[in-house]
Design a protein around this nucleic acid. Structure first.
Length: 598
RNA sequence: GCCCCGGUAGCUCAGCUGGAUAGAGCAACUGCCUUCUAAGCAGUAGGUCAUGGGUUCGAAUCCCGUCCGGGGUACCA
């Protein structure tokens, strides 16, 4: 059992025996002792003063004595004001260390056969343009939270809803017909999603020009936007698509296939994947049926113009459009259909949507609508709402070209990693292939950590002028720590020294740094758990950084292989190897790989 | 207008279910490589935790007001 639990329950007993007071869980506050004080775990005794009717110092001392005599692991204690600092025996910490080394699932809770199933939706791109930095944040968060939920005892199904139909695709299609000149990814050598994205921008350029021409003729902005020939033609394409016009459908399939090929390349490099992919073109009709069913059952209502609405005023919200007056579906319609199909396909206990916080209202409404339609899982959906990635100039906008392209960004990062590594000359012993592989690992590590270390809920800033750091609180710093450890282990193996976990009789002095590092290792299970319950890869990212930082201090102050005392040497080897293992497993949950050398 | 979220060092971010003297990294300055990887370590400097009140033994953290920024708000997704 974890020492915190033991102390917690013993404190409860102490309070009862000493003060006849039954404490609620929240009142017993245990925290890591601050570094400036002596001890490992601290109990805050202020909440008990009312019952002890004694000074804070005396109350803390009494509880301290009780704990010391009832728990073997509590060696000593000291009292500072109302803080009871407990010193835990190093035997306990070395026990955790051995566990961290020998137990491959240390800190993880394995999913049993009957574990709850969580479906995580993420990525969900439109197929009219390539992925940008905003999508990267989405993909990394979605992938990481899936991995984190898996080791918190959930079965996880990663899913992607591809928005493959709609007016936006038709705009690119129209642009290809009119100005595409028969371009294909093959004959231009361009990545398919980029080619389609360029067509989308081309459409917008023409469209904007038409609008200003019409406005010059005296039309209002709104009228101009409605009457511009480009948008009329794009709408015509959408109508023909919905009618199943074979020529349009053929072009749609072709252009989407270009985009998918491009997306696959990006996803692969980014290291994300999916267990099940849904396409809007296959779900929107299901959604439409559901809305019509709701209409028939009197859950929704129809206006004179034919549009269908939900009245949510009873839930403190407004009226919500579900079908346009021309009968076509909207975003919400599709999401209802997708949800229904998913719950038919899987026995989902928890549905998690990784979608930006600009859609908070949408998901609030979706939950209510699903509930009204009679799905008891509707209310339980979880919107993993994350903040925007902003540029110094503000929000990214695809049409205005103010986006940081995902492929460009990754390539640029690899270039920086390559230059840096070559300058340092540390990878010269590797083959060119191994070296390239390492640059890739480091570059992606830097990018992923940069994104994931930030609290998902908050907006974050990316400045393209300053490249993402490789020093300090960064992915490469943590990876470097891992590589250092591997280097020590390789040198050890050359001397026939291997990690020896039978250090039961280790009785040597443990330095302050060694103890701090052991304590940090023992916090891994808490970080994993917290990251899961709080839906926050950032908690895990920051833990990994702290662990690496703590190790580097230890590494600087202590010789491992040079240590004369064999017991100490073995202990430090075990300590180092365990830290390496935790770093590797921790980063893996963030989708970050580790290099053996760097 | 109404609703939601945010404001912590020059910059990017931790800390926020109330606890000890508010922490990292970057940038600036100073040291440390004949010893297991210097993508590292140590140090200096940098703060009215936007602001005014309240709650209490104790507030960056909880509540209310104000200012500033971002997002949403019925036929875009």
């Amino acid at each position: 059992m974890k020492i915190e639990q033991i102390i917690h329950s013993t404190v409860a007993k102490a309070l009862e025996e000493l003060y006849r007071f039954e404490a609620s869980d929240g009142q017993i506050q245990l925290q890591a002792t601050r570094k400036d004080f002596e001890g490992d775990i601290t109990l805050v005794v202020f909440p008990f003063l009312k019952h002890s009717k004694k000074r804070p110092e005396d109350t803390a001392s009494e509880i301290g004595e009780y704990l010391q005599s009832h728990i073997d692991e509590v060696l000593r204690f000291n009292v500072v004001k109302g803080f009871l600092n407990l010193e835990i025996s190093s035997r306990y910490w070395t026990g955790e260390l051995k566990e961290a080394w020998s137990n491959e699932s240390y800190g993880f809770q394995k999913a049993s056969e009957k574990a709850e199933l969580a479906m995580v939706e993420y990525s969900s791109p439109n197929t009219n343009k390539p992925l940008h930095l905003g999508h990267i944040r989405n993909n990394l968060l979605g992938f990481s939270i899936s991995e984190i939920l898996k080791v918190n005892g959930y079965q996880v199904v990663k899913t992607n809803i591809v928005n493959d139909r709609g007016i936006h695709i038709c705009k690119s299609m129209l642009a290809w017909q009119k100005w595409g000149n028969g371009k294909t990814p093959e004959n231009t050598g361009k990545k398919g999603d980029h080619l389609v994205g360029e067509l989308y921008v081309a459409f917008d350029k023409h469209y904007k020009q038409e609008i200003s021409e019409l406005e010059a003729k005296g039309l209002s902005k709104k009228e101009a936007e409605e009457q511009a020939p480009s948008i009329q033609e794009a709408r015509e394409l959408l109508r023909r698509w919905e009618a199943g016009d074979s020529e349009v459908v053929e072009l749609w399939k072709t252009m989407n296939s270009w985009v998918y090929e491009g997306f696959d390349t990006t996803y692969k490099r980014l290291g994300v994947d999916f267990d099940k992919i849904y396409y809007e073109s296959e779900t929107y009709l299901v959604g439409k049926e559901e809305v019509l069913r709701g209409l028939k059952e009197g859950i929704f209502y129809r206006k004179e113009d034919g549009s269908v609405w939900a009245d949510l005023t009873g839930d403190g919200l407004d009226n919500k459009l579900l079908l346009r007056s021309d009968g076509t579906s909207v975003y919400m319609t599709q999401d209802i259909g997708t949800a229904k199909m998913r719950f038919n396909d899987f026995s989902i206990n928890k549905m998690i949507y990784v979608v930006g916080n600009e859609q908070n209202y949408h998901f609030q409404v979706l939950a209510i609508l699903l509930d009204k339609l009679g799905y008891d899982w509707g209310k339980g959906l979880h919107h993993f709402s994350y903040g925007m990635v902003e540029l110094p100039s503000g929000k990214m906008k695809s049409r205005e070209g103010t986006v940081v392209d995902a492929d460009d960004l990754m390539e640029g990062m690899v270039q920086v990693a390559r230059e840096m590594a070559q300058e340092l000359g540390k990878l010269d012993s590797l083959t060119p292939e191994e070296a390239e592989r390492t640059y890739e690992i480091i570059a992606l590590g830097a990018l992923k950590y940069f994104i994931l270390k930030v609290d998902p809920k908050k907006n974050m800033l990316f400045n393209p002028e300053e490249s993402i750091d490789f020093n300090g609180n960064t992915g490469p710093f943590i990876q470097y720590t891992y590589a250092r450890i591997q280097s020590v282990l390789r040198k050890a193996a050359e001397r026939e020294l291997f990690v020896n976990e039978s250090i039961d009789d280790f009785s040597g002095e443990v330095s302050l740094k060694e103890k701090e590092l052991m304590k940090k290792v023992a916090l891994f299970p808490d970080a994993v758990k917290e990251a899961g319950s709080g839906y926050s890869p950032a908690i895990l990212a920051n833990y990994c950084f702290e662990l690496a930082k703590e190790f580097n201090q230890f590494y600087h102050d202590h010789s491992i292989l040079g240590e004369k005392d064999m017991q100490k040497r073995d202990f430090r080897l075990l300590l180092s190897a365990s830290v390496g293992k935790i770093i590797k497993r921790g980063l893996k949950l963030l989708g970050i790989e580790v290099p053996e050398r760097m």
